[in-house]
């Protein structure tokens, strides 16, 4: 019943949420709207922080901070760095 140690990537998602909101790119309402739009499946299959990074990403693209294309090439670049989070981070 106790809390686990949060993984680094989870803490970073949390930090990005706070910092992105502080920059005025989204509100908690905007994040929740994205979460609610994901459909029931997301709540069965994704973990908590997986849903949050998806919601943050969607809000940042909508706010014009970066484009879908930029995200795509960046994710490909990150994936190519290695097979673990530690190698790719």
């Amino acid at each position: 019943m106790d809390s686990h140690d949060f993984a680094l990537w989870e803490k970073r998602v949390d930090a990005l949420m706070i910092l992105g909101a502080a920059r005025g790119h989204f509100t908690v309402d905007g994040l929740r709207r994205a979460l609610e739009d994901m459909g029931e499946d997301a709540f069965e299959k994704m973990t908590y922080y997986e849903r949050w990074i998806a919601a943050i990403n969607q809000n940042l693209i909508e706010a014009g901070v970066y484009s879908l294309e930029e995200l795509g090439s960046k994710m490909a670049e990150v994936e190519a760095r290695g097979e673990t989070y530690g190698a790719a981070q």
Binding site: W9, R12, V13, L16, L19, G20, M46, T47, Y49, E50, I53, A54, I56, N57, L60, V65, Y66, E70, L71, K74, M75, E77, V78, E79, Y85, A88, Q89
Partner: peptide, 13 residues
């Protein structure tokens, strides 16, 4: 996939 997205989002920002 989602960890990859976190790294990408952070670096883009």
């Amino acid at each position: 996939y989602w960890q990859t997205m976190e790294i990408a989002v952070r670096e883009l920002m």
